[in-house]
Design a protein around this nucleic acid. Structure first.
Ligand SMILES: [Mn+2]
Ligand SMILES: [Mn+2]
Ligand SMILES: [Zn+2]
Ligand SMILES: [Zn+2]
Lengths: 150, 150
DNA sequence: TCACTATTAGATACAAGGTATCAATAACAT
DNA sequence: ATGTTATTGATACCTTGTATCTAATAGTGA
């Protein structure tokens, strides 16, 4: 669903997602979409704000980020230190491999963790309704470049 | 490791864990240990503070909680709404099944998620160093008592 | 094109949750 | 008992938001 239309830029796709949901196209939202579309990795609300004209209200930044998460355009990424970041989401529900050395993230695929959790929960008499998972470590790049050396 | 000595009360075990690590035994810490030992479920820093004499400084509460997490006596529990709670930890690293209806939590056991994650990460060329997982749903009690009905 | 109305924006104040600083106090090893 | 060091609590401060409100504006349809 989100970001499926590969012929559109990230910025355009963000705006389209808002439009599809009946939100109005405003100058602040266009500015935000452009700023988000340009991010090369996950970012914080305040970090994003620093790249925006200071005339753009703080509340608007937070409001729009929440909107975009609800719309499935952005996903939240919890860093190991508790910092909440955002990044473009390509899928519905999924998880991340977060490199603690370079800060990169990749989506965790080919992992049937949902099934494992469902089965294990059931064994506890527990009916699963949701979960939260982040995985931290060293990415291939950092390992090869020796950044992971002790 | 933490809370293994079953002949001691939770409060005593908390104090002993601090002593073992070379921390001084102070009146504020004894008060805190007693208050924590009495908790029946996970609690927040501010919730705990409300049960404490107001003379006990706020900074002391946060400092001590951090200390106890580092000592492995407490574990952090992230609720679905982002609230950070604490609870006594009986094992090293483990995860929780959190009931979103009654707020109870049980430790997730019999789950080889660590292995699954390690294997999946490796397939991504990723060297796993840590992870964070919380599982939300309805507990057996709530299901049986019909609290889970739509 | 123009007005009408519900959304939206930005200012501002507020709040939760947590940390930095620091002088005063208390533990505890000797 | 004394001296050193860890610890405390007060205070100020910070980050990350949210509530509230008025002004502005997008989108609707006449
Ligand atoms: Mn992702
Ligand atoms: Mn636990
Ligand atoms: Zn890396
Ligand atoms: Zn329950």
């Amino acid at each position: 669903m989100a970001l499926k239309k590969r012929n559109l830029s990230a910025t355009e796709q963000i705006l389209e997602a808002l439009e599809e949901r009946g939100y109005r196209s405003t100058a602040p939202r266009r500015t935000l979409a452009a700023a988000i579309g340009v991010q090369k990795r996950h970012f914080t609300a305040e970090g994003l704000r620093r790249q925006l004209p200071p005339t753009l209200g703080r509340a608007t930044v937070y409001r729009t980020l929440k909107l975009l998460v609800e719309a499935g355009v952005l996903c939240r990424v919890m860093l190991e230190d508790g910092d909440l970041h955002y990044q473009l989401s390509h899928r519905g529900h999924h998880h991340h491999l977060l490199c603690v050395l370079c800060g990169s993230s990749q989506d965790l695929t080919g992992c049937d963790i949902e099934d494992l959790l469902a089965a294990t929960s059931a064994r506890h008499g527990f009916e699963l309704s949701g979960h939260w998972l982040e995985v931290y470590g060293h990415c291939r790049d950092c390992i090869q470049n020796g950044r992971a050396a002790a």
